[in-house]
Simulated scan of single mutants.
Amino acid sequence: MMKVRLTLAAVFAALASGAVAAPSGQQLFEQRCGMCHSLQQAPGKMGPPLAGVVGRKAASFPGYTYSAALKGSGITWTADKLDAYSKAPTKVVPGTKMLLGAPNDAERAAVIAYLASVKK
């Protein structure tokens, strides 16, 4: 047990010092968002594809059935809007289908920067 604690302590120290690189936005997208979203249209995904989402009007991807709440939100997805929505979707758009948020500020920023780089 002591060995495990020392190992975890070493990992946390390495992360804090920057010796271990944080996951990239692409890696975080694949790990955290990829269960529900793809970049391009993919069968079996619960959420809409997200390539080209930055700058796109909410609820506008053709062929996806959005909630009435998101359709009526009037949102255009800027980095700030994506940040607020992905942190607490139901607070930003009550009645949205997306229920889980991402609490980590740095991870959200990395994913949003990645999505901004991915064009449709």
Rank of each mutant, 00 (worst) to 15 (best):
R56D: 07
Y66V: 01
A51Q: 04
F61H: 06
Y66I: 02
G63F: 15
V53N: 00
G63P: 03
G47T: 02
Q27N: 11
G44M: 06
T65C: 00
Q40K: 11
G55K: 11
R32E: 11
Y66R: 01
Q27Y: 11
G25S: 12
Q27I: 08
F29C: 07
F29N: 09
A59D: 08
M35C: 04
L50W: 05
P49Q: 06
V54W: 02
G25H: 12
M35W: 12
K57H: 13
V53M: 01
F29M: 12
G25C: 12
Y66F: 15
S24A: 14
C36K: 01
L28K: 02
P49V: 00
G55L: 11
H37F: 08
Q41A: 14
C33M: 11
Q40F: 09
Q31W: 10
G44C: 10
K57I: 12
S60L: 03
E30P: 03
K45P: 01
L39F: 05
A42V: 12
G25V: 13
F61I: 11
G52R: 00
S24W: 12
S60Q: 03
L28W: 10
Q40A: 14
S60A: 14
T65K: 15
P62H: 12
G52Y: 03
G52A: 06
G34A: 09
E30F: 04
Q41R: 14
M46Q: 09
G52L: 05
A58W: 01
E30T: 14
K57S: 15
P43C: 01
L50Q: 06
S38R: 02
Y66Q: 00
E30A: 15
T65S: 15
F29Y: 13
G47P: 00
A58Y: 02
M46H: 06
F61L: 13
P43F: 08
R56L: 14
Q40I: 02
S60M: 05
P43K: 07
P62Q: 04
G47L: 05
S38E: 06
C33W: 10
P48E: 07
A58I: 01
K57P: 00
Q31S: 14
P48W: 06
S38N: 05
L28Y: 05
T65G: 09
Q31G: 10
F61Q: 04
A51T: 02
Q31L: 13
P62Y: 09
V54N: 01
V53T: 04
L39S: 03
E30L: 12
L50I: 09
Q26L: 11
Y64Q: 09
P62R: 02
G34H: 03
Q40N: 09
L50V: 07
G63T: 08
Q41K: 14
L39C: 04
P49D: 04
Q41M: 13
C36A: 06
Q31E: 13
P49A: 15
Q40C: 01
F29P: 01
Q27S: 15
Q27C: 05
S24V: 13
P49R: 05
A51D: 05
P62S: 07
M35S: 13
A42F: 08
